[in-house]
């Protein structure tokens, strides 16, 4: 199965939004990395990842988000995350990734932060 089909891309005011509609365990995390690498290859600078429909995320997926956020910042852009369920917030906090990636309550607030 190709879980990239469950990662919908759209654009608003020059910001790419990835809406993820699958849980992010090891297999889907690998696909998330491919999607993010694709955006980097397209020279996209501003990305919002909407996790409102995700109920599980593992450290591989968190690592992919952290890595791409850092790379985007080097070129003046950023990756912001929004709409995390409580257990996802706990995972980000446990790893410490919430101090590296900006997290917002809603997609609108993440978009407004750019």
């Amino acid at each position: 199965m190709d879980s990239t089909k469950l990662m919908k891309l759209r654009e608003e005011s020059g910001i790419k939004i990835i809406e993820i509609k699958t849980d992010l365990s090891s297999y889907a995390a690998s696909d998330l990395r491919k999607v993010l690498e694709g955006l980097l290859a397209e020279k996209v600078e501003k990305v919002v990842v909407n996790l409102s429909q995700v109920s599980h995320i593992n450290s591989t997926a968190v690592g992919a988000l952290v890595g791409v956020a850092k790379r985007l910042r080097q070129s003046g852009g950023d990756l912001k995350i929004c709409a995390l369920a409580d257990n996802l917030t706990r995972t980000f906090n446990l790893i410490g990734a919430s101090s590296v990636v900006e997290i917002y309550e809603s997609e609108n607030s993440a978009l407004a932060a750019f």
Partner: peptide, 11 residues
């Protein structure tokens, strides 16, 4: 926290 990998065992 800023590393992409190496968090699994910690979790």
């Amino acid at each position: 926290p800023s590393n992409e990998r190496g968090h699994g065992i910690f979790i």
